[in-house]
C-alpha cells in the first residue's frame, strides 16, 4: 500500500517534473547569458493554448508541441527586444510578459474550454526522457564548449566579453529565445499530455516554480533535474493530500517551499551564485 503510494507519487512527480525541467533548462540558459525572464508562466500558457489548438485541429499532438515551441520563442523575442535592444528593466518586462501571456491565452482560449483532445501524448513520454538527455547535453555545452564559455562570459562580465569580440546582444537574444522555445514546449506538455484539454490558467503557476528551480539548482542544468523532480513531487502532493489537509493550504505548498529554498540558497559560496551581470542591461562603451 505505502510502496504503491510512494511509487505513484514518484511517477506523478516525473510527470509534472517534465514541464518544470524543460522550462527551468530554458530559463537557465537565458539567465546564464545575463537576462532574467520572469515571463516563463506567460510563455508556458501561450504554449499550452497553441499546442492544444493545433493538436485538436490537426490531430497531431507532436505538431502541437512544435508550434508551442515557436510561440514560446516568439514571445521571448519580445522580451529580448525590450530588455536587450531597448535596455528596459528586465524584471518589469518579464512580469509584463507573464501577465500578457496569461491574458492573451485567456482571450484566445474562449470557446476551446471543455473540448476533449482525442490524440494525446502519454504523461511519461519521450519528453520526460528527452528532458533528462537535454539537461546532460546543455550541461556539457555550458561548461565544456566554446559556446558555453561565450554564454557564461556574457552573463558574468559582458564588458570583458565585448572587449574580446563577443557580440553580447546576439548571444543574449539567442539564449532568451532558446529559453522561450523550451518554455513554450513545457506549456504544451500540459495541454496535450498532462491534462489533455484547455482550461484558462492551466499551467497553474508552474512557470514561477521553474524560476525557483533555476535558483535552487544554482544555474546548473544537471542539478535542475533534481530540482524539477522535487518540485514535481511537491506539486503533485498538493493535490494528493487534499483528503486530509485544506486544499487552499496545500496549494501554497510548492510556493512556500520555493520561499524556503530561496532562503536556504541565498547564502552561497562564491562560484555558485547568480551570474554577476544578471538583470543588468549592457551597452558597449559605457561604464
Amino acid at each position: 500500500m505505502i510502496t504503491e503510494w510512494i511509487l505513484d507519487t514518484l511517477i506523478r512527480a516525473l510527470a509534472v517534473g517534465t514541464p518544470l525541467l524543460w522550462a527551468a533548462l530554458g530559463e537557465i540558459y537565458a539567465e546564464r547569458s545575463g537576462v532574467i525572464n520572469l515571463g516563463v508562466e506567460g510563455m508556458m500558457i501561450l504554449g499550452a493554448f497553441f499546442a492544444f489548438a493545433v493538436a485538436h485541429t490537426s490531430g497531431n499532438p507532436a505538431l502541437g508541441l512544435l508550434v508551442a515551441g515557436v510561440v514560446g520563442g516568439a514571445s521571448a523575442l519580445l522580451h529580448a527586444f525590450l530588455s536587450v535592444t531597448l535596455r528596459a528593466n528586465q524584471y518589469v518586462s518579464g512580469l509584463a510578459l507573464a501577465m500578457f501571456g496569461l491574458g492573451l491565452a485567456g482571450v484566445l482560449g474562449r470557446g476551446w474550454e471543455g473540448i476533449p483532445l482525442l490524440n494525446t501524448l502519454p504523461e511519461i513520454s519521450g519528453l520526460t526522457y528527452l528532458g533528462v538527455v537535454l539537461a546532460v547535453v546543455l550541461w556539457f555545452v555550458l561548461y565544456h564548449t566554446r559556446l558555453g564559455l561565450v554564454i557564461r562570459s556574457t552573463g558574468e562580465a559582458p564588458a570583458a566579453a565585448d572587449a574580446l569580440g563577443v557580440n553580447v546582444a546576439r548571444v543574449r537574444y539567442l539564449a532568451v529565445v532558446f529559453g522561450g522555445i523550451l518554455a513554450g514546449i513545457a506549456g504544451g506538455f500540459f495541454s496535450v499530455a498532462y491534462r489533455p484539454s484547455w482550461t484558462e490558467g492551466m499551467t497553474g503557476g508552474t512557470g514561477w516554480i521553474a524560476i525557483a528551480i533555476v535558483i535552487f539548482a544554482g544555474w546548473d542544468p544537471l542539478r535542475a533535474v533534481w530540482g524539477a523532480l522535487l518540485f514535481g513531487a511537491l506539486y503533485y502532493l498538493s493535490f494528493r493530500l487534499q483528503t486530509w489537509i485544506a486544499p487552499e493550504a496545500l496549494r501554497m505548498l510548492p510556493f512556500a517551499f520555493t520561499i524556503v529554498a530561496l532562503a536556504a540558497t541565498s547564502r552561497r559560496r562564491r562560484g555558485e551564485g547568480a551570474p554577476e551581470a544578471l538583470g543588468l542591461p549592457y551597452a558597449s562603451g559605457e561604464k
Binding site: 561565450v150 562580465a157 564588458a159 566579453a161
Partner: peptide, 19 residues
C-alpha cells in the same frame, strides 16, 4: 576586464579565433 568566476585559461580562451 576579467570574468572573476572563470579560470585563467577560460578568460584567455574566450573569443580566441580558431579554438
Amino acid at each position: 576586464l576579467l570574468i572573476r568566476r572563470h579560470t585563467v585559461a577560460e578568460n584567455i580562451a574566450l573569443g580566441l579565433p580558431g579554438e
